[in-house]
Design a protein around this nucleic acid. Structure first.
Lengths: 186, 186
DNA sequence: AAATGCATGTAAGACGTTACATGATTTT
DNA sequence: AAAATCATGTAACGTCTTACATGCATTT
């Protein structure tokens, strides 16, 4: 049994996307932006070099397939590529989980600002998550055509952002009330 | 009115931490790991060079203050540094929000694996979030001594991870039941 | 004719982690 | 005596974003 192939972070999403039928770098990018972007993004600057590398590794096979006079390379998984994908899905290595939330950081340091600023920061966080939620909900309408995996991540994403929005609403109310009491007392 | 100072991502957390009374790179790192790490991490490899840069920018003032024979540099905010921090807190620029969740990515592609793998992946996600939640809850016991900002982010973090855990539990149950029905029918 | 979409790619730079190196002090 | 903690720092590497460049096809 050969040593398991180590996939780079971007390699994982690309291999999966090819397995899900995306054939070109362009298609992969479109689909990533539509579906996984909220929890796993990828840019052209990563995708194209990584496609080439995965081909050199023997995990993908690329074939020129111009549409009209337009250059185009379609990719498919090799046997090794399918194995690598399944190996990653089956592995129990520690899962990457990284969150970087500037709204939370501002909230953390909000004691250095005014109470009004704290509230408006929470409002900005809420509006941000509301925009994301709207995008996810728009996607939900078409989720009947999606496989179970994508449907489940969409559900989880919606629940996640909804949870933050609820917390923001409740906290905005609480802080506003607190401010009222201060105001009335003074 | 001078142009607002542009803070690097790590610069923001450092300035805030110094404003909150952390005086050395070492102290900043300890406190980041204890408090903001779940939504904003920082490593020594970032902190020390950034401290030097912030000093060159005139936002921090460093002063050697050896404890015994042990080298030590304590930092404090300059007026410009306090202004830069407050400027950032007051700005309404788009908030950085980045999530990178390998568990969700695996779930997304879980149609390439078995139903059992999907369930065990969700279990792994849940266990991961349970570990984080435990750390946050341990912190909660001492939150009485914390300012409002840190207390609020702690609450939000707890709610966030609890939400994901709940979703995982419910989905694990649903998928297990689904598997049972398939099993009984066959 | 212009704008949008399809399609590929690179270069520069920003950002971050890991691993390593050093050495004093305090605790066990 | 050993281990843990305090304390600072760098070098190498991995990763990612942004901006740019190119050019054909389709839609307006």
């Amino acid at each position: 049994m050969p040593t398991a192939v180590e996939l780079t972070p971007t390699g994982r999403v690309i291999l999966g996307m090819v397995a899900y039928g995306r054939q070109t770098g362009y298609e992969i990018k479109q689909f990533v932006d539509k579906t996984t972007r909220h929890f796993w993004a990828a840019s052209y600057g990563q995708i194209y070099p990584e496609l080439a590398r995965l081909e050199r590794q023997g995990l993908l096979r690329g074939r020129p397939d111009p549409a009209g006079g337009r250059q185009r390379t379609v990719y498919e998984l090799t046997d090794a590529g399918l194995q690598a994908l399944k190996g990653w899905l089956a592995s129990d290595a520690e899962l990457v989980f990284e969150l970087r939330d500037e709204g939370m950081l501002k909230l953390f340091f909000s004691d250095m600002g005014s109470p009004e600023q704290r509230i408006s920061n929470i409002r900005a966080m809420r509006e941000r998550h509301e925009r994301t939620l709207a995008q996810l909900c728009a996607l939900e309408d078409t989720s009947a055509h999606m496989p179970d995996g994508p449907r489940l991540t969409l559900e989880l994403g919606i629940g996640l952002h909804r949870g933050v929005i609820d917390w923001c609403e409740a906290t905005e109310r609480m802080l506003a009330q607190h401010a009222d009491q201060q105001g009335n007392a003074g």
